[in-house]
Design a protein around this nucleic acid. Sequence first.
DNA 1: CGCCCTGGTGAGCGACCGTTAACCTCGGGG
DNA 2: CCCCGAGGTTAACGGTCGCTCACCAGGGCG
Lengths: 197, 197
Amino acid sequence: MTTSSAASSAAARAAAQPTRREQILATAAELFAARGFHGVSVAELGAACGISGPALYKHFSSKEAILAEMLVSISETLLAEGRARVAAADGPEAALAALVDWHVDFALRDRALIVVQDRDWQSLPAEARERVRTLQREYVDVWADQLRRRDPALSRDTARAMAHAAFGLINSTPHNRVLPDQDTREVLTSMALAALR
Amino acid sequence: MTTSSAASSAAARAAAQPTRREQILATAAELFAARGFHGVSVAELGAACGISGPALYKHFSSKEAILAEMLVSISETLLAEGRARVAAADGPEAALAALVDWHVDFALRDRALIVVQDRDWQSLPAEARERVRTLQREYVDVWADQLRRRDPALSRDTARAMAHAAFGLINSTPHNRVLPDQDTREVLTSMALAALR
DNA sequence: CGCCCTGGTGAGCGACCGTTAACCTCGGGG
DNA sequence: CCCCGAGGTTAACGGTCGCTCACCAGGGCG
């Protein structure tokens, strides 16, 4: 009973009170963000959770599996919510605004995950790495599709390049701690919309 | 004779034909970018240079020293050229355009260094880490100053936040390989200028 | 010609890492 | 009441890593 059926319920688990499993994931996100996947030992991670090293293996099959669950689940969430906001929007302009809002919210709330996602992506086991790559590509295309609906002259690849650039802009949150979050939100939102204009 | 007097001559060395030292730095940049500082062993790095492991210590005092030289020198270059372009520009608008051009050039040419700089920054020894932090802050302020010259209503911190966001946008080059470099240059330049508008 | 400095080699050391194994504790259900 | 599974412990193992050491080739110079 591995409970890792991939498409399963981040939502269901998040609804319950925080389990040890979730504590480990949250703690790991912070530590990996601060010192990198290879820079954090299982002993440290355990200690930060109030247990010690090998006890982690009662909850995850390996250190890599912790990273995998973390990154796969966050990629799924990004994509699912992105699609939901597009579906709820009225036209490409509104859809893009909704995507920017969503991504800015995410980038401000989960700075650690942003750092881990693009720093330690290549430490994933092959299967999870491929899954994350696919989910990210789909997410890029959610943005690119709306850009092309708004401006049909845009090539698919140009639209993708613009989406990547917008992610880079918004994902600057980990380096961007000079302003209070609310002010950062406004700056990033208006800059992203201007850049995509 | 350590030849590591910090503020010394990246320029002088770069003028000569590529030495082993420079080969090591270039190779290390690629490998660190691909698998992370902790993910590359000195044996691998040596092998990639055609020598083997311990031979690296004839050129650098430690593995960390390789990272330090790489990141300090690139931070110095970014700052120096940024200042030069501002000095040569006629007014804040032109200065910002020159900064964007310079940073886009850099981000397209040295993708590996961008990856290493923001992924492995914290693996630096304390002294070098502090130096890089200082240089980066000064570089941010070069941008922020021009933004405030153009729009005096901008607070210093808002201007800094905007600079960070612009770097994030332009530094998306490592993830942004969908277009040929020349097209990517145009997309990034116009998006960055629009975002800073 | 002989010397020594430069830049290489391979062996090996000590530390640490991820993981496994063997064992303990304890709360809840038959 | 007893058992057992869930979740924790410590000890230990194999592997790898950064780095040092002792040694060596060879070319330029006194």
